[in-house]
Protein backbone atom coordinates (compact mmCIF):
# COMPACT_ATOMS: atom_id res chain seq x y z
CA UNK A 1 0.00 0.00 0.00
CA UNK A 2 1.43 3.31 -1.03
CA UNK A 3 1.41 6.01 1.60
CA UNK A 4 -0.07 9.38 0.79
CA UNK A 5 2.13 11.91 2.40
CA UNK A 6 1.50 15.64 2.67
CA UNK A 7 3.80 18.40 3.81
CA UNK A 8 2.53 21.45 5.64
CA UNK A 9 4.70 24.53 5.52
CA UNK A 10 3.62 26.99 8.16
CA UNK A 11 4.37 30.71 7.83
CA UNK A 12 3.64 33.65 10.04
CA UNK A 13 3.47 36.23 7.28
CA UNK A 14 1.38 36.34 4.12
CA UNK A 15 4.12 37.87 1.97
CA UNK A 16 6.63 35.23 3.01
CA UNK A 17 4.11 32.62 1.93
CA UNK A 18 3.63 34.19 -1.50
CA UNK A 19 7.38 34.41 -2.03
CA UNK A 20 7.75 30.80 -1.02
CA UNK A 21 4.94 29.71 -3.35
CA UNK A 22 6.67 31.56 -6.19
CA UNK A 23 9.95 29.81 -5.41
CA UNK A 24 8.22 26.45 -5.42
CA UNK A 25 6.50 27.28 -8.67
CA UNK A 26 9.79 27.98 -10.43
CA UNK A 27 10.93 24.50 -9.40
CA UNK A 28 7.73 23.09 -10.86
CA UNK A 29 6.34 22.06 -7.50
CA UNK A 30 2.56 22.17 -7.22
CA UNK A 31 1.02 23.69 -4.12
CA UNK A 32 -2.17 21.80 -3.26
CA UNK A 33 -3.81 24.44 -1.09
CA UNK A 34 -3.25 27.31 1.26
CA UNK A 35 -5.14 27.93 4.49
CA UNK A 36 -5.04 31.44 5.88
CA UNK A 37 -6.86 33.64 8.38
CA UNK A 38 -7.64 36.22 5.69
CA UNK A 39 -7.57 36.37 1.89
CA UNK A 40 -4.04 36.74 0.52
CA UNK A 41 -4.09 39.06 -2.49
CA UNK A 42 -2.00 37.95 -5.42
CA UNK A 43 -1.81 34.34 -4.32
CA UNK A 44 -4.40 32.83 -6.66
CA UNK A 45 -2.41 33.04 -9.94
CA UNK A 46 0.72 31.67 -8.22
CA UNK A 47 -0.91 28.48 -7.01
CA UNK A 48 -3.08 28.18 -10.10
CA UNK A 49 -6.55 29.15 -8.92
CA UNK A 50 -8.77 30.44 -11.67
CA UNK A 51 -10.96 33.51 -11.06
CA UNK A 52 -14.39 32.48 -9.89
CA UNK A 53 -17.41 32.93 -12.13
CA UNK A 54 -19.86 33.45 -9.30
CA UNK A 55 -20.69 37.00 -10.38
CA UNK A 56 -21.88 35.75 -13.77
CA UNK A 57 -24.29 33.49 -11.93
CA UNK A 58 -25.55 36.47 -9.97
CA UNK A 59 -26.35 38.25 -13.21
CA UNK A 60 -28.51 35.39 -14.47
CA UNK A 61 -30.27 34.98 -11.13
CA UNK A 62 -31.05 38.69 -11.37
CA UNK A 63 -32.45 38.28 -14.87
CA UNK A 64 -34.62 35.47 -13.56
CA UNK A 65 -35.88 37.77 -10.80
CA UNK A 66 -36.73 40.54 -13.25
CA UNK A 67 -38.60 38.17 -15.51
CA UNK A 68 -40.57 36.64 -12.66
CA UNK A 69 -41.60 40.09 -11.50
CA UNK A 70 -42.68 41.02 -15.01
CA UNK A 71 -44.69 37.85 -15.28
CA UNK A 72 -46.21 38.26 -11.83
CA UNK A 73 -47.30 41.86 -12.34
CA UNK A 74 -48.68 41.09 -15.76
CA UNK A 75 -50.54 37.96 -14.69
CA UNK A 76 -51.94 39.23 -11.41
CA UNK A 77 -52.72 42.82 -12.32
CA UNK A 78 -53.55 42.69 -16.02
CA UNK A 79 -54.55 39.23 -17.08
CA UNK A 80 -56.11 37.37 -14.18
CA UNK A 81 -58.10 40.06 -12.42
CA UNK A 82 -57.72 43.62 -13.70
CA UNK A 83 -58.94 46.22 -11.24
CA UNK A 84 -59.36 49.95 -11.25
CA UNK A 85 -57.52 51.07 -8.17
CA UNK A 86 -56.92 54.72 -7.32
CA UNK A 87 -57.79 55.81 -10.84
CA UNK A 88 -55.12 53.58 -12.32
CA UNK A 89 -56.95 51.31 -14.69
CA UNK A 90 -54.91 48.26 -15.54
CA UNK A 91 -55.60 48.09 -19.23
CA UNK A 92 -52.09 47.27 -20.36
CA UNK A 93 -48.96 46.34 -18.58
CA UNK A 94 -46.98 49.12 -20.20
CA UNK A 95 -49.38 51.84 -19.07
CA UNK A 96 -48.98 50.68 -15.50
CA UNK A 97 -45.26 50.04 -15.77
CA UNK A 98 -44.01 52.87 -13.48
CA UNK A 99 -45.95 51.38 -10.58
CA UNK A 100 -44.41 47.97 -11.17
CA UNK A 101 -40.79 49.14 -11.22
CA UNK A 102 -40.22 49.13 -7.42
CA UNK A 103 -41.37 45.55 -6.92
CA UNK A 104 -39.46 44.44 -10.01
CA UNK A 105 -36.28 46.02 -8.72
CA UNK A 106 -36.65 44.37 -5.33
CA UNK A 107 -37.30 40.96 -6.78
CA UNK A 108 -34.28 41.29 -9.05
CA UNK A 109 -32.01 42.04 -6.12
CA UNK A 110 -33.65 39.36 -4.02
CA UNK A 111 -33.02 36.63 -6.59
CA UNK A 112 -29.53 37.79 -7.51
CA UNK A 113 -28.36 38.02 -3.90
CA UNK A 114 -29.88 34.84 -2.58
CA UNK A 115 -29.14 32.82 -5.69
CA UNK A 116 -25.54 33.86 -5.51
CA UNK A 117 -25.14 33.12 -1.81
CA UNK A 118 -26.73 29.69 -2.21
CA UNK A 119 -24.36 28.95 -5.08
CA UNK A 120 -21.48 30.17 -2.97
CA UNK A 121 -22.36 27.83 -0.13
CA UNK A 122 -22.76 24.95 -2.57
CA UNK A 123 -19.49 25.38 -4.46
CA UNK A 124 -17.59 26.03 -1.26
CA UNK A 125 -19.28 23.00 0.30
CA UNK A 126 -20.00 24.80 3.55
CA UNK A 127 -23.17 24.18 5.50
CA UNK A 128 -24.15 23.75 9.15
CA UNK A 129 -22.76 20.51 10.48
CA UNK A 130 -19.85 20.19 8.10
CA UNK A 131 -16.54 19.24 9.69
CA UNK A 132 -13.82 21.82 9.05
CA UNK A 133 -10.79 20.48 7.19
CA UNK A 134 -8.12 23.07 7.85
CA UNK A 135 -5.04 21.08 8.91
CA UNK A 136 -3.97 23.31 11.75
CA UNK A 137 -6.29 25.24 14.08
CA UNK A 138 -3.86 28.13 14.09
CA UNK A 139 -4.60 28.78 10.42
CA UNK A 140 -7.68 30.76 11.43
CA UNK A 141 -5.70 32.72 13.97
CA UNK A 142 -2.24 33.93 12.94
CA UNK A 143 -0.60 31.21 10.83
CA UNK A 144 -0.57 30.70 7.08
CA UNK A 145 -0.43 27.05 6.12
CA UNK A 146 0.70 25.76 2.75
CA UNK A 147 -0.19 22.23 1.84
CA UNK A 148 1.98 20.28 -0.61
CA UNK A 149 1.04 16.76 -1.61
CA UNK A 150 4.07 14.58 -2.22
CA UNK A 151 2.02 12.40 -4.56
CA UNK A 152 1.33 15.45 -6.74
CA UNK A 153 5.05 16.08 -7.08
CA UNK A 154 6.57 12.67 -7.66
CA UNK A 155 9.51 14.04 -9.61
CA UNK A 156 10.77 16.07 -6.67
CA UNK A 157 12.38 14.72 -3.55
CA UNK A 158 10.63 15.43 -0.27
CA UNK A 159 13.83 16.80 1.13
CA UNK A 160 14.06 19.35 -1.61
CA UNK A 161 10.54 20.64 -0.96
CA UNK A 162 11.30 20.99 2.72
CA UNK A 163 14.53 22.81 2.00
CA UNK A 164 12.80 25.34 -0.18
CA UNK A 165 10.15 25.87 2.48
CA UNK A 166 12.76 26.34 5.15
CA UNK A 167 14.87 28.70 3.08
CA UNK A 168 11.90 30.87 2.16
CA UNK A 169 10.92 31.55 5.73
CA UNK A 170 8.64 28.77 6.84
CA UNK A 171 8.62 28.77 10.64
CA UNK A 172 7.48 25.19 11.03
CA UNK A 173 7.19 22.19 8.73
CA UNK A 174 4.98 19.23 9.47
CA UNK A 175 4.40 15.98 7.69
CA UNK A 176 1.29 13.92 7.77
CA UNK A 177 0.36 10.59 6.28
CA UNK A 178 -3.11 10.38 4.87
CA UNK A 179 -4.72 7.02 5.28
Amino acid sequence: MSTKKVIYGIFDDDHALIESAKALKTKGIRVADVFSPFPIHGLDPVIGIKPTRLSNFAFWYGVFGTLSAVWMTWYMMISDWPMNIGGKPSFTWLENLPAFIPATFELTVFCAAHGMVISYLLVNKIYPGRKPHNPDPRSTDDKFVMQINTFDNKRVEEREIMDILKNTGSVEINEKVLS
Binding site: D33, V34, F35, S36, P37, I40, L43, D44, I47, I49, L121, N124, K125, I126, Y127, P128, G129, R130, K131, P132, H133, N134, S139, T140
Partner: peptide
Amino acid sequence: FGWSGSAKQ
Protein backbone atom coordinates in the same frame (compact mmCIF):
# COMPACT_ATOMS: atom_id res chain seq x y z
CA PHE B 1 -20.50 26.01 8.56
CA GLY B 2 -17.22 24.08 8.60
CA TRP B 3 -15.24 26.93 7.10
CA SER B 4 -11.58 26.05 6.56
CA GLY B 5 -10.13 29.17 4.98
CA SER B 6 -8.62 27.54 1.92
CA ALA B 7 -7.42 29.72 -0.93
CA LYS B 8 -10.38 28.85 -3.13
CA GLN B 9 -12.88 29.60 -0.40
